[in-house]
Amino acid sequence: MTKQQFLNELNRLLVQVPEGERKDILSDYEAHIDSAIENGKTEEEAVADLGSPKTIADELDVFVATDKLSGSKKETTTNVGPNIFAFLGMLLFNLIFIIGPVVGVTGAFIGLYAAAFACLITPVAFIINLFTHDTPILLAFFLILATFSFGYLFLLVTNFLAKWFLKLIHWYWKLNVKIVKGSY
């Protein structure tokens, strides 16, 4: 692994660490690798001696996690265990109000994806058409370009929306967990 690969990998593994601290951590390793090279190691050796980014991230994570744990303990010492009433309440609320729309929107997304896919494969039909019928080649070309571009844009937009939808669901799920755990 090269220095840059190592740093990139570590950076990726530490996404949840605040930017400032993450940069600080990475600069420690960068300086270390540079010093090791100055002292006669190859880049490859210097990186290998550090161990895997995963091991390092795990090691750092332990401290992050325990910091959080000791912090949250202070806040919620009066709260013992998850709240069963909150859980049942949320369950009922979700069954009545949330499940329906979520299933509906998910269905809509499946439809949108199908439509985008259909647009994307339409050019195939035009190409076949070109061979079987006497379609003017310029017309066929523009039709192919148009349907394909449209399908591609359609796919991008759907992807974008789907991402937000997933984020929303994720956020809502975390909210549920928080409520049940009683930290709200």
Partner: peptide, 29 residues
């Protein structure tokens, strides 16, 4: 400095050098 510290240890004890930095970070915190 970091490299010096890590190197003087890895010279004597077999460790993954990268794991010393999290330790330094914690001790600093």
């Amino acid at each position: 400095y970091g490299y010096e510290l890590v190197h003087s240890i890895s010279d004597k004890i077999q460790i993954a050098e990268g794991t010393v930095y999290p330790l330094l970070r914690r001790l600093t915190k």
